[in-house]
Design a protein around this nucleic acid. Structure first.
Ligand code: ZN
Length: 621
DNA sequence: CGTTTTTGACCGGCGC
DNA sequence: GCGCCGGTCAAAAACG
């Protein structure tokens, strides 16, 4: 049976066959609407919590400044600068040290009025030029300042982060080293990546497809997605109606069912709390693993021969589990799972996948499908897809590993998102024990209900929840849950959180993360509800949020969360530097070409971007 | 004809 | 050691 899974097996028609995934363009332009902008500001103000050691920074674009700041150092600005855009770049940092130094070296030349009344015209021009120049200079200074501030902040954040981590986990050694290591590698990789992304970004502008606004959002996901849905729709509908049941459609022999059934028959809770698996060590390789990946003989492996050591294709993918305590080079330790609503059999993340297995999961009527990335032959990345038992409309996709190749633009969003999440998790989780405890605690709060996958998760797992969905979310939900319709929240049990000033986070959050982290519990699993990739976000947001139209209040929180999330991500993201640079650059650029997106969007976008959440790259081939 | 999907068989870790 | 289990393989079928 093709997929009794909750979804429409849709038989092979259309969607099932592989390629649907193709690249889709992602559009970020959508991002947030204007209100968002407001929110941001609000948030910024409110957030400023001096008390927290952590500093958060927001990049903000405001229209007040009028001219665009150029990053030019001392270059003489040509007078021609027009104020193309109305966005100014403003940076708010809460609590940094007293100021970032401002040394700019060049004193802002105040606009001096020329005294030569000679030729009025010339004089006028001159005067104007001077004024502009002055202005520019000022701006430049400001920017410089800002930059500096940012840099400092960044530094500080890093430091803080480490401290915290250390404190948390006593022996920070590994971690530190690990991190730095990652940083470098990642840095390199990302640098390219980023630039690439940025490039894609700009061009996007709003144009893109002619689709309606809503469409744009969707595009993020990829048209494919849509199409998929459509295709599946027929089946999907049926399924929806009777999630559990599902007639066996399409081919497939009757017997098949039998075996499966037997397997699944008993779902036992599968709880199997493995108290302490603390595979944390492996942490570092996770991301690093990507590189190692190198790859070897991908395919040919006879299981016979290798028998004992299935090294083969992917470098020992075996699990690390408690046993060997080895970190396996494959980088299979961390997992990132994404929950999203989707009718499609699998969500379209822009990558190409080949299904290599399907199994009935224990506590779930829906089978779990295993996919492997086929973009590159040796790519170690795998993902497993399963529908949530409670709510069949939710698709849980778990990614594992890092791509060893460049990704199509459409896929970058997801990939980087997951990778960022993984990094975060790893870096944070290093201090296993405490984390575990915390999570455990939370667990109670969170309660469960969610059968979700793996009650027994041997690996550290991060869950990004893109559903605003109540049901599942509820379980993990956040205490205060003001019910803001945030489709996602990003909390990380790991490092990030702690850094947030309570005020900023507000009750909701704090409760939130605990709970969440708890949810997956078991070992070191964390749940993060979050928003990942922009494309994604948008897609989801729109899809879901749209209907619920926001309440006025949501914004602040919404943003706060977003930002905090971003912050968290940033903190833990080794590539932050690169990202930061990219972000700044992009901001500036965007201003230069006002073509980009609205300021409001930009903020968030950037924030996310910085955080390592790729916003999306749009583009098409 | 090359890919991808389907699926029962296998494997290795665990708990009992 | 046995059975349960999550994962994987790989032969065969289905697609395009
Ligand atoms: Zn790949």
């Amino acid at each position: 049976m093709r997929t009794d899974i909750g979804k429409p097996p849709a038989a092979t028609s259309g969607s099932s066959s592989g390629r649907m995934d193709r690249v889709q363009r992602i559009d970020l332009s959508v991002a947030l609407s204007d209100d968002a902008n407001e929110d941001v500001q609000e948030m910024a103000t409110s957030d400023q919590t001096p008390s927290s050691p952590v500093t958060t920074q927001y990049l903000q674009l405001s229209s007040d400044s009028g001219s665009k700041p150029k990053f030019v150092e001392s270059a003489p600005l040509s007078a021609r600068l027009m104020e193309d855009d109305s966005n100014g770049l403003r940076l708010a940092t809460n609590n940094c040290h007293e100021r970032s130094t401002v040394e700019d070296g060049s004193p802002p030349p105040s606009p001096e009025r020329s005294t030569t009344p000679a030729e009025p015209e010339i004089r006028e021009q001159l005067r104007r030029a001077q004024l502009e120049m002055a202005r520019m200079t000022e701006e430049n200074e400001e920017i410089k300042k800002m930059f500096k501030t940012l840099s400092m902040e960044y530094h500080r954040l890093h430091v803080n982060m480490f401290q915290m981590l250390n404190a948390q986990s006593g022996p920070a050694v590994t971690q530190a080293s690990g991190l730095s290591f990652q940083t470098e590698e990642e840095y390199k990789r990302h640098t390219e990546h980023d630039s690439r992304t940025a490039a894609n970004l700009f061009p996007i502008s709003s144009s893109q497809s002619q689709g309606s606004a809503s469409r744009n959002a969707i595009s993020a996901f990829g048209d494919g997605h849509i199409s998929d849905e459509k295709e599946d729709s027929r089946d999907a509908e049926a399924v929806k109606v009777l999630p559990g049941v599902v007639g066996k459609r399409s081919r497939e022999s009757p017997e098949t069912q039998t075996p499966d059934r037997s397997e699944m028959t008993r779902q036992r809770d599968g709880a199997a709390p493995r108290a302490a698996s603390s595979p944390r060590e492996a942490a570092m390789e996770e991301s690093g693993g990507s590189e190692h990946v190198t790859e070897s003989p991908p395919r040919e492996r006879e299981r016979d021969e290798s028998s004992s050591a299935p090294s083969t294709g992917w470098p020992h993918n075996k699990r690390m589990k408690t046993g060997p305590a080895v970190h396996d080079p494959s980088g299979r330790n961390a997992r990132v799972s994404v929950r999203a609503r989707s009718d499609a059999t699998t969500l379209n993340d822009g990558c190409q996948w080949r299904k290599y297995g399907q199994k009935m999961a224990k506590g779930n009527p829906c089978p779990r499908a295993y996919y492997r990335c086929t973009v590159s032959q040796g790519c170690p990345v795998r993902k497993q897809v399963q529908r949530c038992a409670d709510d069949t409309s939710i698709l849980i996709t778990t990614y594992e590993g890092t791509h060893n190749h460049s990704l199509p633009p459409a896929a970058t969003a997801m990939a980087s998102t997951t990778s960022a999440a993984a990094n975060m998790l790893l870096s944070g989780s290093t201090s296993s024990s405490e984390m575990v405890e915390a999570s455990t605690h939370a667990y109670n709060l969170a309660s469960r209900t969610a059968p979700i996958i793996s009650a027994s998760t041997p690996f550290p797992t991060i869950t990004l929840d893109l559903t605003n969905n109540p049901a599942a979310a509820q379980q993990m939900r956040m205490a205060g849950a003001n019910a803001f319709q945030m489709p996602y929240s990003f909390t990380s049990a790991s490092s990030g959180l702690q850094m947030h000033p309570p005020s900023m986070i507000n009750p909701v959050q704090s409760g939130g993360y605990y709970a969440q982290s708890a949810a997956e519990q078991t070992t070191g699993a964390f749940q993060v509800y979050t928003n990942p990739a922009a494309g994604w976000l948008q897609h989801q947001m729109q899809q879901q949020q749209q209907q619920q139209q926001a309440s006025p209040t949501r914004s602040p929180q919404f943003l706060a969360e977003t930002v905090s999330a971003a912050t968290a991500a940033i903190t833990s993201d080794p590539n932050f530097t690169a990202a930061l640079a990219a972000a700044i650059t992009s901001i500036i650029s965007s201003q230069t070409n006002s073509t980009m997106m609205g300021a409001s969007n930009a903020n968030i976008t950037e924030a996310l971007r910085v955080a390592g959440l790729p916003i999306s790259s749009a583009r098409k081939d």
